[in-house]
Nucleic acid binder design. Structure first.
Lengths: 400, 400
DNA sequence: TTCAATAGTCCAGTAGACGAACTAATTGCC
DNA sequence: GGCAATTAGTTCGTCTACTGGACTATTGAA
């Protein structure tokens, strides 16, 4: 409910619609009676509201389910897996991943497009996204899903739906939603709203939604090339005053002096970034070949005790732990999740980060753990922003 | 509006009441017509709502004011400076400060009680607060103000209205509101609700409210003895998962090794804390005499180029800047305010902190400035939490 | 078969915002 | 002075959407 807007009966209705939709999403198959009980609304109102949600295709009635005692059995309601759905894209310098998500949160389809180099002209990314979108739109068509939104996760600073600055992609002030919307029209899917979001922030959202921590404050650190953090506070991403919150990659590390893409020297990215780390461990050719699978070689080297690799990883862990150790006392998070390319570095790396972090701030009560989510979390989280927006504001959808 | 609660006409009314009260507070003397325009409510509704606020003593009608053109002149409404008011206390190891604030935000009275040592038994603080409270209650009585709440700012971690841990005071798991409420009853002011809050967080609130920055994200760093930060995001304090957000005093500084009260060595407090700094500058006797005014001697020494003092202050600035430089890229604040004893260290100190911060994170767009607020901001901010709670939820007050 | 229990619908009642019509008070023009 | 224009504020009937109790529906158990 907007704080500075008047509340009329309509807003009241909107709020209660959202409340019921949210509860239906949370409780899975659920009866109107239970919804009434959990929401605090009366049965009559819930009948009315669920009726609207059913008509709008957000809910579906599955026959009377259990019969665990006397009394009329309930007509169970669930989110409609056939109705509205969302597409999420993840764009990185070397690939575009995408997925189609229905309202229940199930991934209906995935798609991946590898590419040589998507940096420079944003149209390259649009072009690489096209086959991914085409496939997902086709799938949606065949599964009776209606795509109501496309959300894109990018390693970029985003402000007012515009990419203000993307280090790793070389973009600046790009209205990417507009570019992609154009391509969507060409695919016969014009008018679908496109949103963009920072991929670190989406990854943090993903950990909050799917990580199972029930955290009040969660910090996710990771990234494909550049390192970055996403901060979730009370279920909301903290984007910062300019959308730049979590940009840790260019914090200077004492003792480091390698040149960074940003023009400075000794940035965290030059010590703990994926490419920098592979290079420092003597895996230059892996970097050049751009093989994501090559990440596996580094933990293998470390496991076999290869001195250069061990030193590089230890150095990265110490630097990262120190930076995070400055963050933790400021934010007091429940959980600090290491994601992106970091979990692949092995549990020794995780332990070393933890150690270094606690050396910086001894009393910290934070739990540090590796992410357990798959590589395409960002695409999934992006798609989830579409579906959860529907559930959080069903009235907007019903109005159409 | 509670997210998980149903909205009925009553909640609708509560919301709109708060909306009108907030606007009246923001716009100063304001007509019903303007309130209707600004709020988006109709004139009829505003008449109804302001009527309730007038009856409840939250608003007051001052005669028809301006007559800048044709048309019936407006009956101006203002917050009632005579009705409900709040008391704010600030408790530190060596003093208790307090103030009485009316709804308009005007300080009706102040009181200060110096004390030798309030650490150890919380009852000492209660005892020192008694004369302060007595005076402020008397003042309220004579100015026709009704004290509706007492809010206390403490250098302590607070959780569920309980002091979980107070480093500088030596308290743990203390239900301070209960203790102080007891004393209030003895003063004939029983039943007044008492709340507690962390003083760093209150200081940040104060900068956000009174600092004039219009910041979306604001960080305040300061403290009397221990250093700490308060973070305000979108008008709300970020307290962290355990209420420990902003506890920067015990971040370890590379190269520092002095023992800290926390049992560790090399904490930020041992480098940039007030006492540590005075000691390092050779002003031991000032520390022992507990003279707050003694702070003036340090900038004087620095100004005169006294080598030890200059070195101590520079070291403190570097350490603090480095710690803050780790924070800024994570949070992306608009403004970083240095408060507490820090502004007294002079503008060279401020510049040195700024320099060190930007050395750590070169691209930061944050504005760094010294606090311009007086020493008793925390008491004022505490009192403001009482009065602003009234304005944010007038229905609760009107119900009584 | 009947009763208890639970699910769900129906409908009159009600709180509270809206809007049009009204009254009120002032300026400015004749 | 009188009257139109203009803005402030109130009154009252209307409308929306939630409530609560009466009602129907469907099951298990006695």
């Amino acid at each position: 409910m907007e704080r500075d807007a008047p509340v009329r009966p309509v807003q009241q209705h909107r709020h209660n619609l959202a409340l019921v939709a949210r509860l239906a999403a949370r409780l899975g198959p659920v009866s109107r009676a239970r919804l009434a009980h959990e929401s605090g609304l009366t049965k009559s109102t819930v009948t009315q509201l669920t009726g609207e949600l059913l008509d709008g295709g957000l809910l579906r009635e599955i026959g009377t389910g259990r019969s665990g005692g006397p009394g009329r059995p309930a007509n169970q309601l669930v989110l409609n897996s056939l109705g509205p759905a969302g597409i999420g894209l993840q764009i990185e310098a070397d690939h575009v991943a995408g997925c189609l998500l229905d309202l229940t949160g199930r991934v209906r389809d995935r798609a991946l497009r590898k590419a040589d180099d998507l940096t420079g002209d944003p149209q390259r990314a649009v072009k690489a996204a096209e086959p991914v979108l085409r496939r997902l739109l086709n799938t949606a068509n065949s599964t009776d899903n209606v795509v109501v939104g496309v959300a894109v996760g990018l390693p970029a600073r985003v402000r007012d739906a515009t990419v203000v600055h993307a280090d790793g992609l070389g973009w600046a002030d790009t209205n990417f939603p507009w570019l992609l919307g154009d391509r969507l029209s060409a695919l016969g899917a014009g008018g679908i709203p496109v949103t963009v979001a920072n991929s670190h922030q989406l990854a943090a959202r993903a950990e909050h939604w799917f990580g199972g921590d029930e955290a009040e404050v969660l910090v996710h650190v990771g990234g494909e090339d550049g390192l970055g953090a996403g901060i979730v506070i009370a279920g909301e991403v903290h984007a910062g005053a300019r959308g730049a919150a979590g940009e840790l990659g260019h914090v200077r590390i004492p003792g480091a002096d390698d040149p960074c893409t940003c023009g400075q020297r000794g940035c965290l990215d030059t010590v703990a970034g994926r490419r920098a780390l592979l290079r420092a461990a003597g895996l230059d050719e892996v970097v050049r070949s751009r093989l994501t699978g090559g990440d596996g070689e580094l933990p293998a080297l470390v496991g076999s005790g290869e001195a250069v690799a061990v030193a590089a990883v230890r150095r990265a862990a110490t630097a990262l732990g120190t930076v995070l150790g400055g963050l933790v006392p400021a934010l007091d998070p429940d959980v600090l999740v290491l994601g992106g390319h970091l979990p692949a570095l092995g549990s020794d790396f995780l332990d070393a980060v933890d150690l270094s972090l606690r050396q910086r701030c001894p009393g910290a009560a934070v739990r540090v753990r590796a992410s357990r989510l798959p590589a395409d979390v960002v695409a999934r989280a992006a798609a989830t922003t579409v579906t959860s927006a529907l559930i959080e504001a069903p009235a907007d959808w019903l109005a159409e």
